[in-house]
């Protein structure tokens, strides 16, 4: 009998802008899609719950300075969802195995939004794999007085309005999003997100487990986040050991797309310092 069944690749639509062909690594039976470019310190970026399949400007900026790797989690982009996939522990083990197969030993890990939660979970399980940890507008802790909006109750338009503060950038990245197949793919990705974060929308154990970290940590918040309360980043910053908190001004939750240069600079400066 086989303990690990192979999962087939999936056909997904290609967004009109910034799409690039991914590479695949078969990890525990799952063909994990990833994009990798550049030289230097290994930097892994874990995406949020959307805008997958793209090599966006911020990635390119970081790839100029580092060996930059952006994998796609199960159910996102071109990585299929295996039937056994349940939670962040499954995800952490998949990523540990992926890094092994890519020949990565110690890495700098960046997580954005839901990927910030994923990165924090990974860090809590594998603290010795990390040279640094950067969380960009992460979620995953409990804000007792402010649960924030329920993103699953928002229509696609309401969600976009809360994600973007800069409506010009929004218009650029929304191009092609009204396509039928893209709409179905979005439902599929939101299903994968719901699998991970439907309930509860936090992991209380993280506050304790993250104390295992010995590497430098960075939290990046946006000045004016309309999707996740600003206090969430603040709480991560006080929870994480060895932390530096920075704020990117005049942007919201989608700061990767709205302020790529500023964000890439903050991340690069921090990673360079952590590499010394």
């Amino acid at each position: 009998m086989s303990f690990i069944d192979a999962v087939d690749k999936v056909e997904v639509p290609r967004p009109p802008k910034h799409y690039t062909e991914p590479s695949f690594a078969e990890v525990l039976g799952v063909p994990i899609a990833y994009r990798r470019q550049g030289n230097g310190e290994a930097v892994v970026f874990l995406h949020g719950a959307g805008f997958t399949r793209r090599w966006v400007p911020m990635y390119e900026m970081l790839a100029q300075k580092f060996d930059f790797i952006a994998p796609e989690s199960p159910g996102f982009g071109e990585t299929p969802m295996p039937p056994w996939f349940r939670d962040f522990s499954d995800l952490s083990i998949l990523y540990d195995q992926l890094f092994e197969q890519l020949g990565l030993d110690q890495i700098h890990l960046i997580g954005y939004s839901m990927g910030g939660w994923a990165a924090a979970e990974f860090a809590s399980y594998y603290p010795r794999r990390l040279k640094s940890l950067s969380l960009v507008v992460p979620i995953g802790l409990r804000l007792e007085d402010n649960p924030g909006v329920d993103l699953f109750q928002l229509s696609p338009q309401q969600l976009m309005d809360r994600l973007f503060n800069d409506k010009k950038v929004m218009a650029e990245f929304m191009e092609g999003m009204d396509d039928f197949d893209e709409g179905i793919h979005l439902y599929s990705e939101m299903s994968a997100a719901a699998r991970l974060i439907w309930a509860p929308r936090y992991n209380l154990a993280l506050e304790r487990r993250l104390q295992r970290l010995t590497c430098p940590t960075l939290v990046v918040r946006a000045e004016d986040d309309h999707l996740v309360p600003n206090q969430m980043a603040e709480k991560f910053a006080t929870t994480l050991p060895n932390n530096r908190l920075v704020m990117i001004p005049e942007t919201g939750h989608e700061l990767c797309l709205e302020r790529p240069a500023e964000l890439a600079r903050e991340l690069a400066d921090f990673i360079k310092e952590a590499s010394k």
């Binding site: 699953f152 109750q153 928002l154 229509s155 696609p156 039928f180 709409g183 179905i184 439902y187 599929s188 939101m190 299903s191 997100a193 719901a194 699998r195 439907w198």
Partner: peptide, 19 residues
Amino acid sequence: DQIFFPPGYMTTKSFRNFM
């Protein structure tokens, strides 16, 4: 729609047929 069909309530295939 997003409240009638929360993500994952329908399989992607059923959702595609329905939409």
